[in-house]
Deep mutational scan, measured.
Amino acid sequence: VTVHVDGVEYDFDNPEEALKFAKKVAEDKNGTYEVHGNQIRVT
């Protein structure tokens, strides 16, 4: 699973970890996250 944040890609073997990371980053920057299959984009 790849999490995209501001043009940087973070790869996770564990989808739950990826989702947790995306949620935290989105909260920290008052943004949102979208899941597209095995890609998660934080905006």
Rank of each mutant, 00 (worst) to 15 (best):
E9Y: 11
D6C: 11
T32H: 13
Y10M: 04
K23I: 11
E27P: 01
A22S: 02
G37Q: 06
V8R: 12
V1W: 15
Q39D: 10
E17F: 05
V5W: 08
G31V: 06
V5N: 03
P15V: 15
A22G: 03
R41K: 13
D13R: 08
V8W: 10
G31R: 06
G37K: 05
E17A: 09
D28I: 11
G7K: 04
E16V: 08
N14T: 13
T32G: 10
G37T: 04
Y33Q: 02
T2Q: 07
N38M: 06
F21D: 03
V25I: 14
N38T: 09
D28C: 13
K29M: 15
I40K: 01
A18Q: 00
A26R: 02
R41T: 14
E17Q: 08
T32M: 11
R41M: 14
V5Q: 01
Q39V: 15
V42Q: 01
E16W: 08
H4M: 13
H36P: 02
V42M: 04
E27A: 14
A26Y: 03
V1Q: 04
K20D: 15
Y10K: 03
Q39C: 14
D13L: 10
G37C: 11
T32V: 12
D11M: 15
L19W: 05
Y33W: 10
V42R: 00
T2F: 06
V35N: 04
A26C: 13
D6R: 05
E9A: 14
H4C: 15
A26Q: 03
G37A: 07
N38D: 09
N30K: 12
Y33F: 13
I40N: 01
V35I: 12
D28Y: 10
T32W: 14
D28M: 13
V1A: 10
P15A: 14
V35H: 07
N30W: 04
D13A: 13
A18G: 10
T43W: 10
V3Q: 00
V8D: 07
A18V: 00
V25N: 05
D28V: 10
V5R: 01
A18S: 02
Q39K: 10
D13F: 08
I40F: 03
V42F: 04
T43S: 12
V3P: 00
E27W: 10
H36E: 13
E17I: 06
V1F: 15
K24W: 07
E9L: 13
H36T: 12
V1R: 05
N38K: 08
H4D: 07
Y33M: 10
K29V: 14
K20H: 11
A26K: 03
K23Y: 04
A22I: 03
E16N: 07
K23D: 09
N30H: 10
K20P: 00
V1K: 04
Y10E: 02
V8F: 11
H4N: 11
T2P: 01
G31K: 04
V3T: 01
G37Y: 04
G31Y: 11
V25C: 14
R41Q: 11
P15W: 15
V3A: 01
K29P: 03
